[in-house]
Simulated scan of single mutants.
Amino acid sequence: MILYLHGFRSSPLSMKARLTGERMAQLGRSAEFICPQLPASPKLAMELAFGLVAGVPAKELAIVGSSLGGYYATWMAEKLGCRAVLLNPAVVPMLDLDQHVGVTTAYHSDQPFEFKREYIGQLRALAVAQVTQPERYFLVACTGDEVLDYRDMVAHYAGAKQKVVQGSDHAISEYAGYLGEVLEFCGTTGKIQ
């Protein structure tokens, strides 16, 4: 089972989420891929995510998180003891997102997106100072990320499997080329039978 958690203001329509879901469908494993629309509230996002994987054994679950979703994936993986793949993850989103308090729109629609000041505290409550079992994590970090500093990611996930991509961008535009490796880490071969 793969739970995909998208980033801030993003959605299941993001390029990486769609590519991952499409590959799982090609593998005949659509039923093992979940990618919910996360609410703006970190507390509600985590309640939703935990509810979707309730009862799934840790050894059968992998969480793939992009940007803010990577921050969430780390907290969930620590709580559940499952594997996690982190795609240009936010390490301290409380600092980065403080400037985004207010109402805007989501990236893939015209829907209003409100990020409230109280959500900063909710993010703080999800902080993981240090991962406890680095071998359960796979970091994909791009040196050309224009939003987050890849060096913070590399340091935070020290000891984890790491793929540091020279250049690229926050969206990881060439993600399709890394998808097989991501799915393999998740316990899916990534090869079409």
Rank of each mutant, 00 (worst) to 15 (best):
G180H: 11
G187H: 06
S30Y: 04
L61T: 08
A84F: 06
V164N: 05
K163N: 09
Y150D: 03
L80K: 12
C142K: 05
R9F: 07
A40P: 15
K163W: 09
E135L: 08
S10N: 06
L179K: 05
Y71C: 12
G28R: 00
A158C: 12
E32M: 05
G65P: 09
V85K: 02
G28Q: 06
S66H: 14
G102T: 10
Y119E: 00
M46I: 15
M76L: 14
Q166E: 14
M15I: 07
F115E: 00
Y137G: 00
T20C: 14
M94T: 11
M76R: 01
V56W: 08
L183R: 02
F115P: 08
A125P: 00
L38N: 01
A129L: 13
V91I: 10
Y157I: 11
L19W: 13
L123S: 14
P12N: 06
E135I: 02
E118D: 09
Y72M: 00
Y72C: 07
V128F: 07
E146L: 03
R23T: 12
A40G: 13
H100P: 01
T104H: 09
L19T: 02
D149C: 03
D152G: 01
I2M: 01
N88F: 12
I192R: 06
F113Q: 04
S67F: 13
A84E: 08
T189N: 09
G102Q: 05
C82A: 04
L97Y: 06
G70N: 10
V85H: 09
D98C: 10
G51S: 09
Q193L: 12
A141F: 08
A160F: 01
S67R: 14
D98K: 15
Q130C: 11
G144M: 10
A160P: 08
H6C: 08
D98N: 14
F185Y: 04
